[in-house]
């Protein structure tokens, strides 16, 4: 029963290229950066490390082949959002370049790797989980205040510095909402982290990010999201029918942590806490210093190397 809404006129490829040419920087990035090693591969592109020749600073470069992008307009969205929403818990966007058929986006590089390496290779305690949740919630409060929904919160999109700093990345699928259009319906995200209202194709808003944060908290407890052993379609079915997922050995968690999870993973969107409310939750008072993440990061990198 989605309200009748005028369909957004789809931009043609030429219009998209025109817009990109306005946004991107002039010049050949090959002259400005020395590409080093490949560090990531995602649906939207490949990520490399690189050295900025002039300063010696290490950066990350995300390369996307425009002809392979099913939804090019999302790329423009990503560039604009990252450029206009600078925050200590958001990976800093530096510049972007058109290189033939490819778009290169240069960003701040965080050598600690992604949170996925840490959750799959090490064991986190509640103090460390609380610290990560607080940092991500700070980014979400900032984004939601600026009418941006990330829509793809998961450990893969959380990058870590060697000092334990925690930053959100990959705005390729975010949505900018407005008073006229404060809700969305398109199914966007990663199935296992999707909120029930997204899966059941209802109108959704910023609180989908809070649900995904709750699933990410389960990753930090169990090493992976619920239903990852199932295929994606079945996982969507289970999210739609089960609602709040079971947490193995939940009784081993502290009551305050259990309550924090309940506030993130409430199927009733109105009851589900916002980022602002969660930042006041007592669980975050258990947070240990970010430096306590350093041993986990080192251990995760060792384990990844040995694979």
């Amino acid at each position: 029963n989605t309200a009748a809404r005028p369909k957004k006129k789809k931009m043609s490829d030429e219009e998209i290229m025109e817009k990109l040419r306005i946004i991107v920087a002039v010049g050949d990035p090959n002259k400005k950066y020395t590409k080093m090693e490949k560090i990531g591969q995602g649906a939207s592109g490949t990520v490399y490390t690189a050295i900025e020749i002039a300063t010696g600073m290490e950066v990350a470069i995300k390369q996307m082949n425009l002809s392979q992008q099913p939804k090019k307009e999302l790329i423009i969205n990503e560039l604009l959002v990252m450029r206009e929403n600078k925050h200590p818990n958001i990976v800093n966007y530096l510049d972007s370049y058109l290189v033939g058929e490819e778009l290169w986006v240069t960003m701040e590089y965080l050598p600690g790797g992604s949170l996925t390496d840490v959750v799959t290779e090490t064991c986190m305690d509640e103090g460390q989980i609380a610290a990560v949740c607080r940092e991500v919630l700070q980014a979400l409060e900032f984004l939601h205040y600026n009418h941006v929904i990330h829509r793809d919160i998961k450990s893969d999109n959380i990058l870590l510095g060697m000092d334990g700093s925690v930053k959100l990345t990959d705005f390729g699928f975010c949505a900018q909402i407005s008073p006229e259009q404060s809700k969305r319906t398109t199914m966007v995200g990663t199935p296992y982290w999707m909120a029930p209202e997204v899966v059941t194709r209802k109108q959704y808003g910023p609180k989908v990010d809070i649900w995904s944060l709750g699933i990410m908290a389960i990753e930090m407890i169990e090493g992976e999201p619920p239903y990852l052993n199932e295929n994606p379609l079945r996982a969507l079915y289970l999210i739609a029918t089960n609602g709040k997922p079971e947490i193995k050995e939940k009784e081993k968690l502290s009551p305050v942590f259990q309550d924090f999870l309940d506030k993130c993973l409430d199927v009733d969107v109105d009851k589900r806490f916002s980022a602002c409310e969660l930042l006041k939750h007592p669980f975050l008072k258990l947070a240990r210093p970010l430096a306590s993440l350093h041993p986990l990061i080192v251990a995760a990198k060792e384990a990844a190397k040995s694979h």
Binding site: V188, T190, P191
Partner: peptide, 19 residues
């Protein structure tokens, strides 16, 4: 199967091919 496992974590937009 490692490739399949990695693809499970890919982001989807609209109706993915497997729906």
């Amino acid at each position: 199967s490692k490739k399949y496992e990695r693809k499970k974590r890919y982001t989807v937009v609209g109706n993915p091919y497997w729906m």
